[in-house]
């Protein structure tokens, strides 16, 4: 196990837990959404760390592709959540 695996792997786990805590406890939508995105970043960091094989060695391209897919899915979900939130505040302000 490389030092980079330790450092980045543990950071990924910490980011996941940090994001999860905010997503569960925060009472503002935006922070909860950012929390979920940080959680996602943690999982992606774990995946990219697993893909890493050391300096000068080609990393695992499958995991890179998975993370690319995950990033696009995450931004789609964020966009939908924000559109729903915008709709809610628009109605709150009207009513």
């Amino acid at each position: 196990m490389l030092t980079a695996h330790w450092l980045y792997g543990i950071s990924g786990c910490l980011l996941l837990a940090l994001g999860l805590r905010t997503a569960l406890l925060h009472d503002m939508l935006l922070q909860r959404l950012i929390g979920i995105n940080v959680m996602g970043a943690g999982v992606f960091l774990v995946l990219i760390t697993v893909a890493y094989r050391g300096p000068g060695i080609a990393p695992d391209p499958v995991l890179h592709a998975l993370v690319l897919t995950g990033i696009v899915v995450a931004v789609s979900a964020t966009a939908l959540a924000l559109a729903l939130a915008r709709r809610l505040t628009a109605e709150q302000d009207d009513g």
Binding site: D27, M28, L29, L30, Q31, L82, L84, A85, R86, L88, T89, Q92, D93
Partner: peptide, 12 residues
């Protein structure tokens, strides 16, 4: 833009 539109107040 969501912050600008105050959308973050939703659910609060």
């Amino acid at each position: 833009t969501a912050v600008r539109d105050q959308a973050h107040r939703a659910l609060r």
